[in-house]
Simulated assay, not measured.
Amino acid sequence: MSETFVDLGFVDAPSGVLVLGMAGGIDHWRAPGRPLSTRAGVAASSGGGRLREWLCEAVAVPAADDRRLRVRASTSPSPFDEEPTIATLEIGLGLPWPGTADRSVPVPLGDLPVDRCGMVVGDATGLDAWTGMADEPADGLADVSYWGRYADDAHARFGGERITRYGVDGPRGWLDLPVAEAVARAAELDAWRDRFHGKGFMVSIDKHTDFHRFRRAGRHHPLHVGAIEVGGCRVLGIEWDQGDHSIRHRGERGAGRVHPVTLEAGEAGEMVMRWTIPPYDFDDE
């Protein structure tokens, strides 16, 4: 049976190098001294390959630098809640399949684990500008959210709007606050919890880093996919349902939970990069 794909959006790669990488570590590539774009450029110059530095992993490939690159996915039911989850991620690279290469044989590029923090598809040079969880937001803003056993009590006292997400009500809180105001409001909620309730009530501050922006952009997408601009390039981020991740992908590379990335010939004769994540098999337990 052939796979049925749905469109997730598009990215661009003006540097001519496209990266599929673990979102939790994109900002750490520059720490050892060589930015992601340098490493990715070397891999792409030889046709593509996997990059790894400590817990950071990615695959880099050459891509057309003058057009939008379509990103699609097929799905399979999650073992957590039976909702659709990504089974195959496919990225059109806008380059012709080499005339001398066998179209029926995929070219292996390595493998990748599913990052609990999500995955990112985008231009290698653009991603050099990625701001991660510990960075400061360029716009100086942050979101505050709260949830848990005493959320209704907190709402009655402090207010806050419902922050909706696909398929669920989501927590309550405030969006787009100046960072200092967000910190003060979260501290007020924490103090109220400690004074009257103790455990059972959670508060989160999410600064508008690129890491948070892609997660926020995907809140209303059934596959948790969101598009943002990073370094002047359009980037797609994919967040995983935490329950699905814990069941289907738990342990990541340390537990052998890695999935193959290949170059293949697409229907129109162009190269595509495919990341194949098998459906969960209860017989493997």
Rank of each mutant, 00 (worst) to 15 (best):
M1H: 02
S2K: 09
E3Q: 14
F5I: 08
D7R: 08
L8S: 07
G9E: 05
F10A: 15
P14F: 05
G16V: 07
V17N: 01
L18K: 09
G24H: 01
I26H: 04
I26T: 14
D27Y: 02
W29H: 10
A31Y: 06
S37E: 12
R39V: 09
V42L: 13
V42M: 11
A43V: 09
A44M: 06
S46N: 03
R50L: 14
R50V: 14
E53M: 10
C56M: 11
E57Y: 00
V61M: 08
A64V: 00
A64I: 00
R67K: 13
R72I: 00
S74W: 02
S74N: 09
D81V: 09
I86G: 02
A87M: 13
T88V: 14
G94K: 01
W97P: 01
W97K: 03
P98C: 10
P98R: 06
T100A: 13
S104H: 04
P108Q: 11
L109K: 02
G110M: 09
G110E: 10
P113I: 07
D115A: 13
G118S: 09
V120R: 02
V121L: 11
A124V: 04
L127K: 09
L127I: 06
D128C: 10
W130S: 11
A134M: 05
A138S: 12
D139A: 03
D139Q: 03
G140V: 02
A142L: 05
V144A: 06
G148H: 07
R149W: 10
Y150E: 10
A151R: 13
D153A: 14
A156G: 15
F158Y: 12
G160F: 02
T164D: 12
Y166N: 04
V168L: 06
V168E: 13
G173H: 03
D176T: 08
E181C: 07
A182N: 05
A182L: 11
A187L: 02
L189R: 08
A191Y: 01
R195T: 05
R195L: 05
R195G: 00
G200H: 11
M202W: 07
S204L: 10
I205W: 02
H208G: 07
T209C: 06
D210N: 14
D210Y: 11
H212Q: 11
R215I: 12
R215W: 14
G218L: 01
H220T: 09
A227H: 04
E229S: 13
E229T: 15
V230L: 07
G231S: 05
L236C: 07
G237P: 04
Q242V: 08
D244T: 14
H245S: 05
H245N: 05
H245P: 01
R248A: 15
R250Y: 12
E252H: 04
E252R: 08
R253M: 11
R253K: 14
A255Y: 10
G256V: 08
H259F: 15
P260E: 08
L263D: 00
A265Q: 01
E270S: 09
M271A: 14
M271H: 02
R274W: 09
R274P: 03
R274N: 10
T276N: 00
Y280R: 04
D281C: 12
F282G: 06
D284A: 15
